[in-house]
Design a protein around this nucleic acid. Structure first.
Lengths: 187, 187
DNA sequence: GGACTATACGGAACATGGTTCCGTTTGCAA
DNA sequence: TTGCAAACGGAACCATGTTCCGTATAGTCC
């Protein structure tokens, strides 16, 4: 394993600036904020973005890496501390929904079949689906829920339900996600 | 009510061509097919599209008007012919899902908060929400389902679950919609 | 049938946003 | 101090939605 050569100092600085700028731009313009806006905020040229983050997905992943990690780690904790696995599942999904609905456009990007977003897709699936699967399995063996739906599909559905959340007060993603989770219960 | 002056013959011809061209383009490129592609198919200039259909939403509505109408009319029929209101609701929602998943990108457009799609949004809501409300109310009075979710939100959720359907075999919108409808059942 | 006018047309021009290219600058090590 | 590979910036390019304007024509009136 050859140690990859240390990056130049200005490159590291710029990457840091870009992460901050992107985070700020995402808050006001959503995760589809124009490249030029992000570059301007960071005080760099547009090509610098592409050099550090070849696709938008890479940038989004880098910006939200910590939060996704925290969400993933919350799974086992909730399972250990909750009265029933089904309750833990519900709480964990609430966390996930909270995360998604506060990132304007992220849920939409997650579902996009645009090739540029495949990394994003893969990252979220890699990190979160196993956690969800663990919670699902626990609730399944406890006899609380049906076992004919896998974690990937459940998370996909939850993500979909979060699309557009916040744009119209008549639509509350949380309520529908609760309904979906309720649908898992055995009759 | 002054009878609005009859349109010119070429205008009517072009409108017809555009509807056919758009329908064809939507099948292969989804409802976000480039304006130029639709214009080329119809053998007209791009401005002609904007003259007849100021926003994309208007074009989409015009193309799918009949199918939406058919879906709306199926509601009362199903309710009259089914054994239980909840079953009728399920069947009707299946119809709606079938419609959405076969129109690439339509579900996404329905949720978009882009101002250009507000007409589309409004049209679907106008036509379908009352039908759904009727089915919901019937099932509610029959004591089969919870009554704390309104038709608008249910349809919104169903529409969301249909986004991206067909782009990945691991995701089946129908299964998740069934789960959502199952979640409505009273325990 | 011929002329007139409102209507409608087509495509070029403009705006926006993603992506790439290339001449220039700069960190770092010898 | 110098050399060069790494990194940079922004102009240029491409794709797409939208508008403008000079031109063509359907329908009407004589």
């Amino acid at each position: 394993m050859p140690a990859l050569p240390r990056k130049r100092a200005d490159a590291r600085r710029n990457e840091e600036s870009l992460l901050e700028a992107a985070a700020a731009a995402f808050v006001v313009s959503g995760v589809n904020a124009p490249v030029r806006e992000i570059a301007a905020r960071a005080g760099v040229g547009v090509a610098t973005i592409y050099r550090h983050f070849p696709t938008r997905a890479d940038l989004i992943v880098a910006v939200y890496r910590h939060q996704v990690q925290a969400c993933a780690e919350a799974g086992p904790t909730l399972l250990a501390g909750s009265t029933s696995p089904h309750a833990a599942l519900g709480e964990w999904i609430d966390l996930f929904v909270d995360f998604l609905v506060t990132k304007h456009g992220l849920a939409g990007a997650l579902q996009s079949d645009d090739a540029a977003f495949q990394n994003l897709h893969a990252y979220f699936l890699d990190r979160l689906v196993p956690v969800c699967a663990e919670l699902l399995a626990a609730a399944g063996t406890a006899g609380e829920i049906r076992t004919d739906l896998d974690a990937l599909e459940l998370m996909w559905g939850v993500g979909n339900l979060c699309i557009g959340s916040g744009s119209d007060p008549r639509y509350d993603a949380r309520r529908l996600v609760d309904l979906l989770v309720a649908g898992l219960r055995l009759p």
